[in-house]
Design a protein around this nucleic acid. Structure first.
Lengths: 205, 205
DNA sequence: ACCTGAACACCGTTCAAGT
DNA sequence: ACCTGAACACCGTTCAAGT
């Protein structure tokens, strides 16, 4: 899809985006370990060396893919914000539910984003994308402090506590280490609410 | 190393353990994505097909490797328990520090254990190994409830909160998403203590 | 029982070459 | 500028064969 260039010839139109789209689909279908650069090129209908014109190597393509994941996650968290006008505690709880749901419904993307294949090491784009999540939580905590429901501590600190909790829930649930099978659709939401209730209790005054 | 069989011939002695040892070293040196089954066989001094006599495939070798990681982690957490006789709160905080330190000093092993390449899906051994961590935290929480420092709730629930928090800290720090470079040796410990302080506050009565 | 070597169908990456 | 095809040094896995 995307925009064709005006010329009728278009070798492929916008190969870069075509590759990212194909990559995202293959990621979801086959999993992070099974997706090859050659597969992506094949799915986009070009030779297996064509991607090198747009990405330095496979890692660069995966990095770009992870960034689209962050955009999507931030978008979903924003939706929670709009939908919920029920005060900071409820907002925090629902953000956690959304965060964990994103992880459970896009497990391979989530793994790509946080699993260590892509890292923030000197990557300003990645760092900015991930910090956007923290900024988001920071806003909730700040609002909660302002209306007196959260303890009057550094909002950034409280945001770190919140992020840590929902991220731990997501990663632990995905690994299956919690003893709750990934297939089970009901349990996760319940666990998230129970754990977040404790967290929120601790953050409240 | 390990035990030679009594016969002088010994094709390799105990190849299975030799492979696991070689695998652990290569994992730490080259990282999870770079370690190949052929590398492991090479390091153990056998042909690249020999491992198939002891492991069904590469995934099975990695799974066995992850299990040794769980044994090591549980051992380190046990050390914290013996060392600290300072009450449940302090014990929980130090357990979190130990948990995160394990992750930071054995990042590739930690990734292997929780990164999704190995999963609990119907794997009783993996589930038992990971549940041992939870049982461990459960004990701390139970003791804390008994002496009246923690809220009188289901100990398993409090243990899930605790595990979630330290695991979130570990994974978020490793990904670099927190904005704290992995190279920085001081910051992590500080962050862990700050976050755990909030968590413990919430768990306390 | 335990290990080897050839073989197969894949990889990621480089490079000269085509339009 | 953008893409192709051959080539290179790797993979994981299977299988007949050796001791």
């Amino acid at each position: 899809m995307a925009n064709h260039t005006s010329s009728g010839s278009y070798h492929h139109g916008d190969l870069k985006n075509a590759l990212l789209q194909a990559g995202e689909q293959l990621l979801a279908e086959k999993g992070i370990t099974a997706v090859s650069l050659r597969d992506v090129a094949r799915a986009a209908g070009v030779s297996h060396t064509a991607p090198y014109r747009h990405f330095r190597n496979k890692a660069a393509l995966l990095r770009a893919l992870a960034l689209t994941g962050f955009v999507r996650l931030n978008g979903e968290l924003a939706e929670v914000h709009v939908r919920e006008k029920l005060g900071p505690e409820r907002q925090l709880a629902e953000t956690a539910v959304g965060y964990v749901r994103f992880a459970m419904t896009n497990p391979e993307m989530f793994r790509l984003m946080f699993g260590g294949m892509v890292t923030a090491d000197g990557d300003a784009e990645y760092l900015a994308a991930s910090q956007a999540i923290l900024a988001w939580l920071d806003e909730i905590m700040r609002a909660g402090i302002a209306v007196g429901v959260f303890r009057d501590r550094d909002a950034g600190e409280l945001a770190q506590v919140a992020w840590t909790s929902m991220h731990g829930l997501a990663t632990l649930l995905m690994s299956g280490a919690m003893g709750i099978s990934v297939a089970d659709r009901e349990q996760p939401g319940k666990l998230v609410r129970v754990v977040m209730q404790h967290i929120i209790y601790g953050l409240s005054r």
